[in-house]
Deep mutational scan, measured.
Amino acid sequence: GTVHVGDKTYHFPTPDAAKKFAQEIAKKLNLQVTVKNGTWQVH
């Protein structure tokens, strides 16, 4: 899975790992999470 946070991109071996990371970052930074075609965006 891929997660975009601002101008950074993180790659994870599984979709679940990407989802978990995106949700944790969003919670920590009080941001929104959207997913499109398996790519997570934190914004």
Rank of each mutant, 00 (worst) to 15 (best):
I25Q: 06
F21P: 00
P13S: 13
A26G: 07
K20Y: 09
T2W: 12
V35L: 15
V5S: 03
T14Y: 05
A17P: 01
P15A: 14
D16E: 14
G1C: 14
T39F: 10
V3L: 03
K20H: 11
Q41L: 15
K20N: 10
N37T: 04
A18L: 02
F21I: 02
N30G: 15
D7Y: 13
H4G: 04
K27G: 07
P15E: 12
G38H: 10
H4W: 11
T2D: 06
L31R: 06
K36W: 12
T39N: 11
T9D: 05
K8S: 06
W40A: 03
L29T: 04
V5D: 03
A22F: 01
H4Y: 13
T2N: 05
F12V: 01
K27S: 10
H43G: 15
E24D: 12
V35Q: 13
G1E: 05
T34H: 06
Y10E: 00
Q32T: 14
K28R: 14
K27D: 08
H4R: 14
K19H: 09
V42D: 02
V35K: 07
T39K: 09
T39G: 08
G38L: 05
K36I: 15
G38N: 14
Q23T: 13
V35H: 14
E24P: 00
T9Q: 07
H4N: 10
H43Q: 12
V33H: 03
A26N: 02
V33G: 01
T2E: 07
A22N: 00
T14V: 04
A22S: 03
G6I: 08
A18V: 01
T14G: 05
V5K: 01
Q23F: 15
T14C: 07
T39D: 11
P13C: 14
T14R: 04
V3Y: 01
K36S: 13
T34F: 09
A18D: 00
T34E: 07
N30W: 04
Q23C: 13
L29K: 04
Y10N: 00
F12C: 06
E24M: 15
T9F: 11
V42W: 03
G38F: 08
A17E: 13
D16R: 09
Q32G: 06
K8E: 07
D7R: 15
A17I: 07
I25H: 03
W40R: 01
W40V: 05
V35N: 14
K36T: 13
T9G: 03
F12K: 01
H43L: 12
H11P: 03
T34M: 06
V35M: 14
Q41C: 14
Q32S: 12
K28Q: 10
V5M: 08
K36R: 11
V33C: 08
K8F: 10
K28F: 09
V42G: 02
H43N: 10
A17T: 06
A22M: 02
K20R: 12
K19E: 14
N37K: 05
K19R: 14
L29A: 05
H4I: 15
T14L: 04
Q23K: 08
A17M: 13
E24T: 12
K28H: 08
V33W: 06
T9I: 14
V33A: 10
G6T: 03
Q41E: 15
K27R: 13
D16L: 11
H43P: 04
K36V: 15
K36L: 14
G38V: 04
Q41M: 14
V35G: 15
G6D: 05
F21T: 00
A22V: 04
A22R: 01
Q32R: 12
G1Q: 10
W40F: 14
V35R: 08
V35A: 08
A26D: 01
V35Y: 15
D16Q: 13
K36P: 01
T14H: 07
K19L: 10
K28D: 06
Q32D: 07
G38C: 06
K19M: 14
F21K: 01
T9K: 07
V3C: 04
H43F: 14
L31F: 07
A18C: 03
K28L: 12
V33N: 02
T9H: 06
V35P: 04
K36Y: 12
G6E: 06
L31M: 15
K8V: 09
A22Y: 01
K8T: 08
Q23L: 15
Y10I: 04
A22I: 03
D7V: 11
F12I: 01
A22D: 00
K27E: 10
N30Q: 08
N30S: 08
T39M: 13
W40Q: 02
H4M: 15
A18W: 03
F12P: 00
L31Q: 06
K20Q: 12
V5T: 03
K27W: 08
T9A: 08
T2H: 06
V5Q: 02
D7W: 13
L29E: 04
Q32H: 12
G1A: 11
W40N: 02
W40L: 06
A22C: 03
Q23N: 11
H4C: 13
A18S: 02
F21L: 01
T2L: 09
K20S: 10
V35W: 15
E24C: 14
N37W: 04
T9L: 10
T34D: 05
V5W: 15
E24K: 13
A17L: 13
K27T: 10
K28E: 09
T9M: 09
K20W: 10
F12W: 03
G38T: 06
H11G: 04
G38I: 03
Q32I: 14
V5E: 01
D16G: 11
G6A: 06
N37L: 05
T2K: 10
Y10W: 07
V3T: 02
T34A: 06
Q23H: 15
G6F: 15
G1K: 11
H43W: 12
V42K: 02
Y10K: 01
G38M: 05
V3G: 01
K28S: 08
T34R: 06
A26K: 02
F21N: 00
T34Q: 06
Y10G: 00
G6C: 08
H4E: 10
T2F: 08
Q23S: 08
A18F: 03
G6M: 12
H43C: 11
V35I: 12
L29Q: 04
H11E: 06
